[in-house]
Design a protein around this nucleic acid. Structure first.
Lengths: 143, 143
DNA sequence: CGCTGTTTATTAGCTAGCTAATGAATTGTC
DNA sequence: GACAATTCATTAGCTAGCTAATAAACAGCG
């Protein structure tokens, strides 16, 4: 449906939009969104990290992270604990509720579904190409 | 910086974010954003189209389009004209100001910069892979 | 003609990204 | 030890996507 002919940028943005919608239709029954699920799994693999560390791991800014974390905390899935050695920081942990919920496998599942019908070597090429484009975009930003 | 190992979904989302930032740093001196520039060029190639038609061309929803269009109109770049044959619709046109501004070439320029250092056959593979992934995502959404 | 259903644009309200600015706590320097 | 600079989390406010609900206009059908 989108404006043709596609440029690469167009198809990227289009795909991201469809992707997000697909993912969210999968996890919404758990009260999650794509971004929150991503944060949740990242916390699970890095328990005790500070908010700044989590934001860096996710590649987002700290105000964005704060909003996502507030939502997870309101759902009772995570908690902030004080850090005695630095009273500015919070150490972020999963609660028991988060461990019980079958939430952590979703992302891998989506990745598998997404790669369906694509040759492994094509996936490798795509991965490499996307990485190069990210570099080009970074350069474009400065230059 | 982001959470590794990258899944494909991760790198896609990451790239889209960097891309948008790169583009916006390029067009911000004209008071535009990526989305507005995209709408502007689409209007230029489809003058007289209705809002619903433009939204379909861009692959976005009509409320999203409305907000973007309001912004362009406030900048004096586009205008809504009544359609006598259907008083619900508006025909969208560029103003003379939009024609004078060198705004319409930006997207192609970004696409060229993005493809720098990537072999043509790799670009072709990537294009094909992204299209297949969009199909897979669509199926995931329903199933 | 009248009524029913559909389409168009709009409004309202949600998520999620960003930057800028702020206050509290820590670190570094003289 | 005191002051300056930095870091951490937060707040405020911007853009841009979405869905749901609404009013106005149109289309079709009895």
């Amino acid at each position: 449906m989108p404006d043709r002919p596609f440029t690469l940028v167009e198809s990227l943005i289009e795909l991201t939009r469809v992707l997000r919608a697909a993912f969210e239709s999968r996890v919404e029954k758990h009260g999650l969104t794509y971004s929150r699920a991503r944060l949740l799994t990242t916390i699970g693999r890095n328990e005790g990290a500070s908010q700044a560390q989590l934001a860096a791991l996710l590649g987002i800014e700290t105000p964005t992270l704060k909003r996502l974390l507030d939502a997870l905390e309101a759902q009772g899935l995570t908690e902030r604990r004080p850090m005695p050695e630095d009273r500015r920081k919070h150490a972020i942990y999963l609660t028991e509720a988060a461990r019980i919920e079958p939430l952590l496998g979703f992302r891998a599942e989506v990745d598998v579904a997404l790669a369906h019908g694509i040759a492994p070597q094509d996936l490798a090429v795509t991965r490499r190409t996307l990485a190069q484009m990210a570099l080009n975009a970074e350069r474009l930003r400065q230059g």
